[in-house]
Design a protein around this nucleic acid. Structure first.
Length: 116
DNA sequence: TCAGTGACTGACC
DNA sequence: GGGTCAGCCACTG
């Protein structure tokens, strides 16, 4: 309780997802790992589902480890997620991000907040 | 209440 | 090198 992690797991996911810069993407595992729950990557996906309803989190910028738009099926449109990514200059083919490594945004590395 | 499912990942065989 | 299994936690039936 007396920890700085008073925030809910979901809330943390929202913060990280919100910090994803324009034209960049990240993976569930990256966020989960940043939160110290790499094995709870599923919860990140679940959080995205809830965050998507909030509308404050760019869930379309979060994909699986291989850059596959596994969650696109949960968006309103069938290719809405792809359209959003392409709108940011990210090439998507066959529901998969092209040059995923190039667009990959690692919170662990970018935020560098794990080391105090 | 119990059991199954899910926008995943890593390890093991 | 490819497929299978287990783990994680929350929500639904």
């Amino acid at each position: 309780m007396t920890k700085p992690d008073n925030k809910d797991f979901f809330q943390k996911v929202y913060e990280v997802a919100r910090q994803i810069p324009y034209g960049r993407v990240t993976s569930y595992g990256a966020i989960a790992k940043y939160l110290g729950a790499a094995r709870s990557a599923r919860m990140v996906g679940w959080a995205m589902n809830a965050s998507e309803k909030k509308g404050d989190v760019p869930a379309h910028r979060v994909v699986n480890k291989i850059g596959l738009l596994t969650g696109k099926h949960h968006f309103d449109g069938t290719n809405l997620m792809q359209q959003l990514l392409e709108n940011e200059g990210i090439q998507v083919k066959e529901h998969q991000i092209v040059n995923f490594e190039k667009y990959f945004w690692d919170p662990w590395k970018e935020l560098q907040d794990h080391t105090s």
